[in-house]
Amino acid sequence: MKCPYCNHPDTRVIDSRPADDGNSIRRRRSCDVCGKRFTTYEKVETIPLIIIKKDNNREQYNRGKIETGILRACYKRPVSAAEIQKCIDRVETKIFSLEEKEIPSSTIGEIVMDELKKLDEVAYVRFASVYREFKDVNTFMDEIKKILDRGNA
């Protein structure tokens, strides 16, 4: 592993342990040249997952896009970074447990909304308003009424 500080090609592993998500290994490394330490994560390489977009274009799965969407939905909400990461991990686990090579983006959107509904209702409504492309205030209010009705049931 190349050192991110001095670009020396050889580094030593000081410590290895399972990462918090249980799906990767966290390694502490040290550079023999500059002496700096850094952390790397090792994940099992999976079959590339292809996402079928609304316009039928296809692109490779990108965890960063899910992360960006959830972070935007949770902006200025009382949700910790750890809770957000766990939410993203759950979404990703559900996606890969489908064991499909190609998945429609609509399926991923529904999985994200299910997880956001459990995490924070305001974040859920924010995400849904963009994802479902609410055209007017009435559509937005219908979604909020569903949440309120569920809470009263």
Rank of each mutant, 00 (worst) to 15 (best):
M1D: 04
M1V: 07
K2V: 14
K2D: 12
K2H: 08
C3A: 11
C3N: 03
Y5M: 12
H8M: 06
H8C: 05
P9Y: 07
R12C: 14
R12H: 13
R12E: 15
V13S: 10
V13G: 01
V13C: 07
I14P: 03
I14S: 00
R17M: 08
R17K: 14
A19C: 09
A19K: 05
D21L: 01
N23M: 13
N23Y: 06
R26N: 06
R29K: 12
R29L: 02
S30R: 13
S30L: 10
C31G: 02
C31S: 03
C34L: 11
C34Y: 07
G35N: 13
K36Y: 09
R37Q: 02
T40N: 03
T40W: 01
T40K: 00
T40L: 00
T40D: 02
V44T: 12
V44W: 02
E45M: 12
T46Q: 13
I47K: 10
P48Q: 08
P48W: 03
L49T: 07
L49W: 05
L49S: 03
I50P: 10
I51T: 08
I52D: 04
K53H: 00
K53Y: 00
K54I: 12
K54V: 10
N56D: 08
E59V: 11
Q60V: 15
Q60K: 13
Q60A: 14
N62T: 12
R63G: 05
R63F: 06
R63K: 13
I66F: 02
E67S: 12
T68A: 04
T68K: 07
G69S: 10
L71G: 04
L71D: 11
R72D: 12
A73E: 07
R77L: 08
S80Y: 09
E83W: 08
E83Y: 01
E83T: 10
Q85G: 07
C87N: 05
C87L: 06
I88R: 03
D89Y: 07
D89T: 12
D89P: 01
R90Q: 11
V91P: 00
E92S: 12
I95N: 00
F96H: 05
S97T: 14
E100L: 09
K101A: 13
E102T: 14
E102C: 06
E102L: 10
E102K: 11
I103T: 05
S105Y: 06
S105F: 02
T107V: 13
T107R: 04
I108S: 02
I108Y: 00
E110T: 05
I111H: 08
D114E: 11
D114L: 08
D114C: 08
L116M: 01
L116C: 10
K117F: 01
L119F: 02
L119K: 04
Y124R: 08
V125Y: 00
R126F: 06
A128C: 12
V130K: 05
V130L: 09
V130I: 10
V130P: 01
Y131G: 00
F134I: 00
F134A: 05
K135T: 10
D136N: 14
D136E: 03
N138M: 04
N138E: 14
T139L: 09
T139C: 15
F140C: 11
M141T: 13
E143Y: 03
E143R: 01
E143P: 02
I144H: 01
K146E: 15
I147H: 03
I147R: 05
I147W: 04
D149V: 14
D149T: 15
R150L: 13
R150K: 09
G151E: 13
G151K: 14
G151A: 14
G151H: 09
G151N: 09
N152K: 15
N152E: 15
